[in-house]
Nucleic acid binder design. Structure first.
Length: 698
DNA sequence: CTAGGGTTAG
């Protein structure tokens, strides 16, 4: 059948004056849907008559039908050739189909060709067609063409104005939209809504709300579900719970509360103003919840760290019989990745397999992401290998997975494969590649990749790339080059870059440069405890105890924010969370006894801490008392006593693991003969038989 | 024909 059509179309690409009658055959054999036939056999609408004043030169109907068929098959290239074959104008419906297809594909050039054909064939478009074109030009942000069409002419109506306003507003040219809005002869709901939503989209919530207020005073203009949801987004954006509540009342009063989107905006407003439970209340009351409302609600729980409720709701969602879509899986898997809930992720994976999900679709890349994030690089690779054409996200996730998992060489090999596959890497891919070089200590290779970003791949260096490079250089003590780079870079260094430099200074005890980095950091984020703590550490290592005391004092003075260190471990589908010195766990006593025993054995084996006088709180997590254990050690200890001998332990931490714990866990892995995996905020550490995969280089 | 909510890689 397909070959048949092809050959028919082939004939059509040659200019011919009389299309073969076989075209009718083509039409009837391809139109399986009743919709299709209806579209073509319908008599022209009234407005279409107006559009076709040149009836005498009307071309053969079969031509129009052929174009319509091509349009329905979304074969724009062939469809667009057709009108040029005949000088007479096409039918209005045919032009409309062509423009629709161009609009769908955002094909500006082709649309212009259609437009040109209309002009040259003497077709005078009615307001319907010219508005469609106008919409297309606006959506393609081709405002010069749009303006030309829009210029004062008898064919423009209120709708044309609205299209222009909405076009400018969507493109972020809110001022132009507003001046049209102010100058228009009459306004309807569309005009107001386009303007309000334009302000919301482009970060001007105050203007949006102001206009919304003005609108209420106009007779004859009633706000509808569109204006209301935009106004709700505006109050959400400025966290104005009060205004949001007012709109909520208004919605109930005027009876707009039967629309899924209005409800969804309401939920969003309450949630983003810090009231998730109220959002849930509204969610429960929503009558026709669609997939979007479900996912938004589920997502809110995850964002707020309420993972149990998030997954409970997800399970309700599945039970409700609602058809999950691609976003559903992507969203939940992403939550599993963020929360490192591998078991649940696997369940979702199983579910996807049962309902026969498409490995081409993007949830497959969410699976790769989830497995990589959970440290299950083998499964990540398995899913990846099943994908016929892995997309950039999958490549990048896997490259990063390998890089963070202490297998930088695999990461780099994978990157070379990516290049061979013809996929174009982007900014983020290179972050993974550069950090792989850092983890592997491949400085020169990293420099080479860094330069290739601009030279070979035609991408611009971003601050992230510079931060990676500074990380790479300063960790290998190449401070001079790092400083030169910072002085030469075309943009302002960001906090990640300075923090990388500071980290390098800590490793190599470079106090002078550390001061430069901390000064810059104090300016960028004055209240981050990590900066002070690191500087204190470097000073302590250098024996400058006076400096240390000073730093301690300034920390007290400016009330720095300490991010609490958390470690967690998933055992039998339950997540156990620990903080420093945590005594709240039911098996707390056993955990502490275990760690106490361990210290004794450490001493017996002649283990001497290398950093006797150094402050141990390298990163944000501070040692509250000398006797308390850091969260990662508690979680590891619990893992060991709660699982049978030989089981691998997997612990996650929200901050970077400290030097002391790192050393202790190496020791633990040797004594108990277990594989211990700790994922900190930076990377994975795989401890086995007294060694760590990061080779102490992190 | 013109308008609104959630969108996966560091």
């Amino acid at each position: 059948m397909r070959a048949n059509i092809q050959s028919y179309l082939h004939k059509f690409l040659k200019p011919i004056s009389h299309p073969p009658s076989s075209l009718l055959h083509l039409h009837t054999t391809t139109s399986t849907s009743p919709h299709h036939t209806q579209f073509n056999l319908n008599p022209p609408l009234k407005s279409q008559n107006k559009d076709e004043p040149t009836n005498h030169s009307q071309r053969d109907n079969k031509f129009n039908e052929a174009i319509d068929v091509l349009c329905q098959q979304k074969r724009l290239k062939q469809a667009i050739e057709m009108p040029d074959l005949v000088r007479s104008p096409a039918a209005t419906a045919t032009y409309s189909a062509l423009i629709n297809l161009c609009l769908h594909l955002r094909a500006l050039k082709e649309a212009k060709r259609v437009h040109a054909h209309m002009k040259s064939s003497g077709f005078v478009p009615g307001v319907f067609i010219s508005n469609r074109l106008l919409d297309l030009y606006c959506k393609c942000e081709s405002f010069v063409d749009a303006q030309q069409l829009f210029l004062p002419n008898p064919g423009r109506d209120l709708c044309s104005w609205n299209i222009m306003i909405s076009g400018y507003a969507k493109a972020g040219r809110v001022k132009e939209a507003r001046s049209l809005f102010d100058g228009m002869p009459e306004r309807d709901n569309f005009s107001w809504t386009a303007m309000v939503s334009g302000y919301v989209r482009h970060d001007q919530p105050d203007e949006a709300l102001e206009l919304f207020r003005v609108m209420q005073r106009y007779e004859g203009i009633k706000c509808n579900k569109f204006t209301v949801s935009s106004a709700l987004s505006a109050s959400t954006a400025i966290q104005a719970l009060g205004i949001g509540k007012e709109i909520h009342c208004h919605v109930t009063r005027i009876g707009l509360d039967s629309d899924a989107v209005v409800w969804s905006s309401l939920c969003d407003m309450y949630a983003k103003c810090g009231n998730i439970d109220e959002a849930r209340y509204i969610f429960d009351k929503t009558v026709d919840r669609d997939v979007v409302s479900w996912m938004a609600m589920i997502h809110r729980y995850f964002e707020d760290g309420r993972r149990e409720e998030g997954f409970a709701l997800f399970s309700d969602f599945l039970k409700s019989g609602m058809r999950p879509n691609e976003f559903t899986f992507a969203g939940v898997l992403n939550a599993c990745a963020v929360e490192t809930l591998e078991d649940l992720g696997k369940q979702v994976h199983g579910y996807m397999t049962r309902i026969g999900f498409n490995p081409f679709s993007f949830p497959a890349s969410s699976l790769v992401h989830m497995y990589s994030k959970c440290g299950d690089i083998d499964n990540a690779k398995k899913v990846f290998d099943l994908m016929p054409h892995p997309d950039l996200v999958s490549w990048t996730s896997l490259i990063n997975g390998y890089s963070q998992h202490g297998q930088p060489n695999e990461a780099l090999q994978l990157f070379e494969l990516l290049l061979k596959s013809g996929t174009k890497p982007d900014r983020i891919t290179f972050v993974g590649v550069l950090s792989a070089c850092t983890h592997a200590g491949l400085v020169d290779k990293g420099l080479e990749y860094f330069h290739s970003i601009e030279c070979k791949h035609g991408l611009k260096h971003s601050t992230d790339h510079y931060a990676c490079l500074i990380d790479l250089l300063s960790r290998s003590r190449r401070f001079k080059e790092a400083e030169d780079m910072i002085d030469q870079m075309p943009m302002k260094p960001d906090k990640f870059l300075w923090a990388s430099l500071l980290g390098g200074c800590r490793i190599h005890g470079n106090l002078a440069l550390a001061k430069r980095a901390t000064e810059a950091l104090f300016e960028l984020e004055p209240k981050n405890a990590a900066t002070d703590v690191t500087l204190a550490n470097i000073s302590a290592t250098a024996g400058k105890w006076g400096e240390v005391a000073k730093i301690r004092k300034t920390m007290d003075d400016k009330e720095v924010v300490k991010k609490p260190g958390l470690s967690w471990i998933e055992i039998k589908r339950k997540v156990h969370v620990f903080v420093v010195g945590d005594l709240s766990h039911p098996r707390s006593k056993e955990i502490n006894d275990f760690l106490g025993d361990l210290s004794k054995r450490k001493k017996e084996e002649g283990y001497v801490p290398q950093t006797e006088n150094v402050l141990h709180d390298v990163e944000e997590e501070q040692k509250e008392q000398n006797l308390s254990y850091h969260s990662e050690k508690l979680a590891v200890a619990f893992g060991i006593i709660a699982t049978p001998p030989g089981t691998a332990i997997k612990v996650f931490k929200n901050l970077r693991t400290c030097v002391d714990c790192h050393m202790d866990i190496k020791f633990i892995s040797k004594i108990v003969g277990r594989k211990i995996i700790v994922r900190d905020s930076n990377r994975f550490h795989c401890f086995e038989d007294g060694r760590c995969s990061c080779k102490d280089y992190w």
